[in-house]
Design a protein around this nucleic acid. Structure first.
Lengths: 367, 367
DNA sequence: CGCATGAGGGAAAACGTTTTCCTAAACGCT
DNA sequence: AGCGTTTAGGAAAACGTTTTCCCTCATGCG
């Protein structure tokens, strides 16, 4: 009975004796928030016991003690400060999401889904927008390592020395949508881009588009490269090979601009292709605006296929066919990749679906 | 010279003696990351000195010592672990952004701007999506308090007991776009919604729309209420009073749905109004789709005005006039509200602008 | 010479947790 | 009665910082 009062009888009876409540150093959270010490004092137990109750350690507290501690926690509105835990455990409950471009609704949607899924696992998501810049990405990586982030999710990673190093050092990284630019398969969550590309080709050819084109973003993105590869291979197989000049991009960073400029190029060359595959919706938006300016209409004059298919498309872009990526499933998949240790380095391939909103244009080959 | 070696001569000469490097407890960051102790050991100083150098405390380290410490930091790639600092300082560098709905591009844009501005101040943003639910909001508030967040930014706050309590307890809160539902002005960042409402009214009446309507979201949002009030007052002043039944909403949570359903109601009533003010772009999107289904075109048959004006509108909604909210300025304004102590509880009113994309419909009152 | 002052820097005390030891009963067993 | 074993719970050691005291020189000034 050294130091702390210990009165089995009163405890058995569940009596919160006044003595017990006051003998303790009064430590009623001197600094604002209640701490584990104030809970311990109020419940008449040691802080170790409080900690164990909070963390549900089995066989370490009697039902009564547990109840008393719970009661004290409730009364004080106690919640463990994360810094203390983080320090001790050398790891925080923070998960960093590094996104290439938050202005892209697709990225925003994935961020939202990830946030919800992580929170369900008791994790907290911090959001960083790298703008696809290697230097910023490295800065964020370092900052998040200093936060002892439990994992770092890269939603569209770009090659950078810091990333290479962290990957080598075995940091927990999850690549989403775009594979690691530094080889070596770490956990990856995404869709089968190549297959999606082939489906788009089949769709366009199947609807009679003879004159095809592709407008794509940076090929350093594995997702873009795979989409393009799949599309090209399938088009050729269907006897509708694309000349190299029909596969183009533009020297802009914004996808919207890429679409607009590339479409300008296509139009300058003469008659517009009848089927255009844009490797992102934003590119398609840019292209579409250029077409409108030209007095052309979609799908009347040509078919435009995008990629990502934000839920907003149903409302603002009924003229666009697009490959729908199941954002909502990304969240849980990311959470699993972080929590699950066994299949940690497995790939998660989620199902995509080509959404066809438009009717084929009326046959007007005759005019 | 007790405990730590102290050799002023060698130090003056800037010599990193081998002895100095090894006498120290070898503590080369035994656990992965280098700690302040490893830096201290390498530089041959105490950890206190390292801390002071890192934090730029004046008059506490000679130029030489500073240089040696900097060198060690560089060589080791040291970065202070935030948990340690947070614990000691009872406050983290985390700022929480609670957003009502991340699927809304307007919110996403503000989130992106805030993230950039906060990072420039050395802060880290954690993102939480409350889905406009009071219980979730409270849960997040508690979680962020446990993180000892330096500030909590509420982008579209909803009334909740936890919020009221935190506000009373003097937590650092910044309300963005929507004012505190619990009265009492805490820092607020937003635009002059009332004024924007009047401008929209003037725009519609000025272009000859005689038959007006408003489709609005939840009026618990101060932003929505103010927009509506401004619009209504100005319309009346211009001799174009709105009957109560021309101001409507719908029992849906999604703005898109609200727009769609409200427009259905309007159409069922007979001829559609000639000018409709939607208190958000998403509502306008929903309304527009319903109009399309009905075979009506904008702006040919009526004028639609939205609110927020995401940059994407230029590309996907050229038919929509909308009040542009300067997202990019929100970031710095939020950062100032957090950092700046003097004008901390001041309001920041940012400039909005009504973007008119459409031409007035040709006069066709005759048909 | 005496003495305040200031510069430079170390020791150690927090900060709030978790977790590893320990210890003391109580509870079977033989 | 003796002896493992389980149960309940306390003490104390980390974890990595920052910051408050100190202490020691050197310097300037009367």
């Amino acid at each position: 009975m050294r130091g702390y009062p210990f009165d089995p009888v009163a405890r058995k009876a569940g009596i919160a004796t006044f003595a017990r409540m006051t003998i303790r150093p009064a430590s009623r959270h001197p600094h604002g928030q209640p701490s584990i010490a104030s809970v311990a004092a109020r419940a008449g137990v040691s802080i170790a016991t409080v900690s164990r109750v909070v963390n549900g350690v089995a066989n370490k507290a009697s039902a009564e003690t547990t109840a008393r501690v719970r009661q004290a926690i409730l009364e004080l509105g106690y919640r463990p400060i994360s810094a203390g835990r983080d320090l001790r455990q050398r790891s925080s409950r923070i998960v960093a999401l590094l996104t290439a471009n938050l202005a892209n609704p697709a990225m925003a949607a994935i961020a939202a889904a990830a946030e919800a899924a992580l929170r369900a696992d008791g994790l907290v998501m911090v959001l960083c927008d790298t703008h696809d810049r290697p230097d910023l990405q490295d800065e964020y990586l370092l900052a998040m390592r200093a936060q002892r982030a439990r994992a770092i999710v890269l939603l569209g990673a770009v090659a950078s020395p810091g990333l290479a190093r962290m990957q080598a050092e075995g940091e927990t990284l999850v690549f989403v949508s775009r594979r690691s630019p530094h080889g070596t398969a770490t956990p990856f969550v995404g869709i089968d881009n190549r297959r999606a590309g082939t489906e788009v080709a089949r769709h366009l050819v199947g609807r009679g588009c003879a004159d095809l084109a592709v407008v794509h973003g940076a090929l350093s993105s594995s997702a873009t490269a795979e989409r393009l590869a799949g599309f090209r291979a399938e088009a050729r197989r269907l006897g509708c090979a694309l000349p190299p000049r029909a596969i183009l991009s533009a020297a802009a960073t914004e996808h919207l601009e890429i679409g607009y400029q590339a479409m300008s190029v296509l139009l300058r060359r003469g008659r517009a292709p009848t089927g255009i595959f844009c490797t992102s919706d934003l590119i398609a938006f840019g292209a579409h605006r250029r077409l409108l300016e030209e007095g052309l209409a979609v799908p009347r004059d040509l078919t435009l296929v995008g990629f990502d298919d934000s839920p907003l498309n149903d409302w603002v872009a009924p003229w666009l066919d697009s490959v729908r990526v199941p954002y909502d499933s990304f969240g849980p998949a990311i959470a699993r990749a972080i929590a699950g240790s066994p299949d940690a380095d497995a790939e998660t391939t989620l199902p995509h679906r080509l959404i066809v909103r438009t009717q084929p244009p009326p046959e007007r080959r005759d005019d």
